[in-house]
Amino acid sequence: MVETSSVPLTGPQGPKPRKALSRRNVFLYGTLLLITLYYALPLYVMIVTSLKGMPEIRLGNVFSPPVEITFQPWAKAWSEACTGLTCNGLSTGFWNSVRITIPSVILSIIIASVNGYALANWKFKGADAFFTILIFGAFIPYQILLYPMVIMLREMGLYGSLGGLVLVHTIFGMPILTLLFRNYFTSLPEELFKAARVDGAGFWGIYFRIMVPMSLPIFTVAMILQVTGIWNDFLFGVVYTGPDTYPMTVSLNNIVNSTQGVKEYNVNMAATILTGLVPLTIYFVSGRLFVRGIAAGAVKG
């Protein structure tokens, strides 16, 4: 070791002191606070209103907290609210949405990840052409395909059924998901793939044993994308299903927009929150999973 001795220092030393209330900080946190309020306020109003009874709402104090908390609007929104002729609330729509979302998400992610993997690692004949077509597909506006899709589903006998909608969601999710997976798999070190081939693993062996375990983050991203996208979908739901098989978004619309009787704001608010609850939960749960996936070093070798 080289001997060192402390020399007394004068003048600036160590970390530069920063003022807590500098103009920069005031501006930064002020803006953040404003934006937070802007987004949080409507949610606050919705929650508050959904917990009030109708008499209290008629007083017109939108921002005041409920005097008497009641969960009756929530119960009504779930099981009694009327959508046109039937009065089953959102529950039917909820279970329809679950039955649509789960298979669509699983199916589209499985197919897209295998597609992306094949495109990224196995440069098969016509891969580039296939990829170009797929990317092109991502840019076609959905509206153009709505009616041709109706005919296709009718010919296949799936029109109006949940299965038909699952198929539609799977197909429409394909371009963007495949692109997502392809890009991720391309970013993984190529030598890993080569090593696995030398080790005698085949197409599926490498996919399941090497690629999938390293791809938790991208699977999470794909899942968030698909669950929220499919759960929030209204257009395909209203076009490709019938009243028995309407997804939750369509039921919600029918409840909120029903013209008979008085407008029950508390029920509408509760119904809206209920419908948004699933994507919200997904964000909270898998957002953390996502971060953990990256932090655990699943990405680097």
Partner: peptide
């Protein structure tokens, strides 16, 4: 084969 980046299965 031995690779430059080790290519160990993480």
């Amino acid at each position: 084969m031995v690779f430059q980046s080790y290519a160990l299965y993480p």
